[in-house]
Simulated scan of single mutants.
Amino acid sequence: MAGPDFDTEIKQLQATMRTIEQVLDVDAMKQEIADLGEQVAAPDLWDDQENATRVTGRLSDLQGQMERFESLQSRIEDVEVLVELGQEEGDEESLGEAERELGRISRAVESLEIRTLLSGEYDAREALVTIRSGAGGVDAADFAEMLMRMYTRWAEQHKYGVEVYDTSYAEEAGLKSATFAIRAPYAYGTLSVEGGTHRLVRISPFDNQGRRQTSFAAVEVVPVLEQTDEIEVPEEEIRVDVYRSGGPGGQSVNTTDSAVRLTHIPTGTVVSCQNEKSQLQNKASAMVVLKAKLLALKKAEERAELDALRGDATSSWGDQMRNYVLNPYQLVKDLRTGYEVGNPTAVFNGEIDDFIEAGIRWRAGAEKVDA
């Protein structure tokens, strides 16, 4: 790589980092870290466990963001020095290492830049994901289970916690539906671009004639709420049904009527939880899910009203969003962004970061057009 190319790339990275610094408001972050540090040092912090968990979690997230930002700044400065020395001494080995390091830094800066695009009201929250099988019979149920594995593998790769609230198994194979939480800061903002209809095309393993089958599954992503969120659900608006938990194996949860199904009568929203042993625990978990979905419904209605005022006749951007083709060729393609890869196996094993980043950039561009 010639000298001017090094200079140009380094200047571009420095300019991007200045933009990121402004968007993150680094000075404000440092002040908040200091304030939270004082709260964490207080001897009575854990008298209120819920507040303590919130404070320590927020502090850890901010410290992680700051460390990531400062580390990238330092790496850019170091590579700039390496380039100068290599050019002065004609050291091709040093210039080769600088070229490789610039590539690594560029990818890291792009990833950090994506985080700055997550500035929505609930983007910093944890995510609640629901997957439902659609048209396609047993293949669709199997596809729903493949998608659940894809997202849980993605979470594992990033060391994010996963908490399963409910799984409804199909009779022959796969899942009718599943609801689970991804426990990580910004999980909602990150995964919200995955919401919509997913389509699978393959030779059906359940068809003894080996015919190609198209099946569908729906993915819904909503933010996990905090107690400060204003969502009041009067008891008279909720119908509570209890039943015996179901699932493979002989877990102890299957031996009592501990599973809970909640129906919000005004909207018809139904949620269930069966993964705890106690009926009270399942009801509490189901209420978390119900409130999150009612908030998402409220936001969707507000968005629909705005779209109607704008005269927006198009469907929402999350509908029919990705194709997974296993036959007659191998391809996974996002229909909104155009991003595609020819390795479906890797995608189903959780390698979806590039799809997510493309989706976040696409959404940010669409929001600018709408503004």
Rank of each mutant, 00 (worst) to 15 (best):
S285Q: 11
P248V: 11
R125E: 00
I265N: 05
V221M: 09
E194T: 08
R58Q: 15
Q227K: 13
A313W: 03
A286R: 08
V193P: 02
I231M: 15
E93S: 11
T19Q: 13
R199L: 05
Q279V: 08
L262F: 12
A15F: 12
N349T: 00
L306D: 12
D47R: 13
L59V: 10
R149P: 06
L85D: 11
R244Q: 11
R18G: 10
A296C: 03
G318C: 06
F206A: 03
Y324L: 05
Q157V: 04
L200V: 15
A259F: 12
V260Y: 08
E194W: 06
E32F: 11
K11I: 03
A364D: 14
S278K: 11
E110W: 03
G342W: 07
P43H: 08
Y188F: 15
T314K: 12
G64D: 06
D139V: 05
T255F: 07
R100Q: 14
A284P: 00
S285C: 05
A184P: 02
L225N: 04
I352C: 02
F348I: 06
R149G: 04
S133I: 02
D312A: 10
F6Y: 15
R68D: 13
V289K: 03
F355V: 06
V40E: 04
E226Q: 14
T116W: 06
N343F: 09
V109T: 03
Q49Y: 13
K283Q: 15
K298H: 14
R18T: 09
V260R: 05
G246M: 06
V270T: 15
G37Y: 12
Q73H: 10
L147F: 10
E84K: 14
